[in-house]
């Protein structure tokens, strides 16, 4: 599903192409599942949706929790089509349980 979206939005890009890497902060169950609190992933699009696709491929064991998570960019909740920069601070926000 992610691959198809990439082809539609990138036009000339081939399925395996990546445009760069981003660092992603992970918390709670996402960090536990990944075994780390920060991950660098190769993305095919500099968007929140692009990061989701990269994480889905990298962390298949966390796909269910990822699908229920929001993504924050530079300390704010981000929309799926939000464009990122190479130095954007990206964080996956799984369902919260404070209080």
């Amino acid at each position: 599903m992610c691959e198809k979206k990439v082809m539609q939005q990138n036009g000339n890009s081939k399925p395996g192409d990546t445009v760069g890497e981003v660092s992603v902060k992970l918390f709670a169950g996402m960090a536990e599942s990944a075994g780390t609190k920060e991950l660098r992933v190769a993305v095919k699009r500099y968007t929140v949706a692009g990061v989701r696709c990269a994480l889905e491929a990298r962390l298949p064991q966390a796909a269910s929790l990822l699908s229920r998570s929001a993504v924050a960019v530079d300390g704010r909740y981000g929309a799926e089509d939000q464009v990122l920069h190479s130095k954007s601070e990206i964080a996956v926000i799984p369902p919260v349980s404070g209080g």
């Binding site: 536990e32 229920r68 369902p95 349980s97 404070g98």
Partner: peptide, 25 residues
């Protein structure tokens, strides 16, 4: 609202099981 919106997470630690709490929306 805090329990819905603010990115804080709890890990429940017990003898029988230990897990991060991620409520269903």
């Amino acid at each position: 609202r805090i329990k819905e919106d603010v990115p804080v997470w709890k890990r429940q630690v017990g003898d029988a099981q230990t897990f991060w709490v991620h409520p269903e929306q």
